[in-house]
């Protein structure tokens, strides 16, 4: 899937360079309607996570500390980065509140009229996922199992769940999945808050 996404992106970039101005301007305006359709569809998927909501009740609200920590820490990291490279704080926090969900965060910033921020957000969250694969074993070994969930953000429910589960235990894998779902719910809410 991620290869197909990258291919779509590359095709788009080529299209942006080659297509006549009015064609690409049309695509720009059509995409805001498509974004609403995408979010509607994402919303349907989110509402279906009933087992996860039940699981949270069962395990206790305490486990929400993990995704809350992930989100708060990411926002803090985004703010620090924005200060370091002289970007507006809000933009920095919008970028880091992608929580690893690179496709949606990139799209949201681009649609908000900031294609540069969209490109940075897309790349930043791709890098976040890539780094997660590498450092999960280290975090599981040197800090604690909860920390191995932290870098994954929203990806803990799918792409990076395997590496977390392999390096921790099955109980942590369940927590990771729940944390990933909660982070996934947070992304489309948090990113627009900072735009």
């Amino acid at each position: 899937m991620s290869l197909i996404l990258l291919a779509a992106l590359a095709l788009g970039v080529a299209g942006g360079v080659l297509l006549p101005e009015d064609a690409s301007a049309f695509l720009d305006s059509a995409s805001s309607v498509m974004l609403l359709a995408l979010l509607f569809s994402v919303g349907i998927d989110m509402g279906r996570n009933k087992e996860v909501f039940a699981r949270i009740k069962e395990l206790g609200l305490k486990i929400l500390l993990i995704p809350v920590g992930v989100a708060a820490g990411s926002l803090f990291g985004g703010a620090v980065t924005a200060l370091l490279i002289h970007l507006p704080l809000r933009e920095g926090m919008a970028i880091s509140s992608g929580l690893g969900w690179y496709s949606l965060s990139g799209i949201l910033l681009t649609e908000a009229g900031n294609p540069t921020g969209g490109a940075v957000s897309f790349l930043a969250n791709v890098f976040r996922e890539a780094i997660t694969f590498v450092i999960v074993p280290f975090l599981a070994g040197h800090l604690n199992f909860y920390c191995a969930i932290a870098p994954a953000g929203a990806t803990a429910m799918d792409t990076t769940l395997g590496v977390i589960s392999k390096n921790t235990n099955s109980e942590t894998a369940v927590l990771a999945f729940v944390s990933g779902v909660v982070c996934t719910l947070l992304v489309p809410v948090l990113v627009p808050l900072f735009l």
Binding site: G73, G78, T81, I95, S96, L123, C147, I149, A150, P151
Partner: peptide
């Protein structure tokens, strides 16, 4: 790309630190 890498690194550091303290 360099800026994005910084964002990724600091978001991961912040998340890990926050989860470490909370846990």
């Amino acid at each position: 790309g360099g800026k994005a890498l910084l964002f990724a690194v600091f978001a991961i550091l912040g998340s890990t630190l926050a989860v470490y303290c909370l846990s």
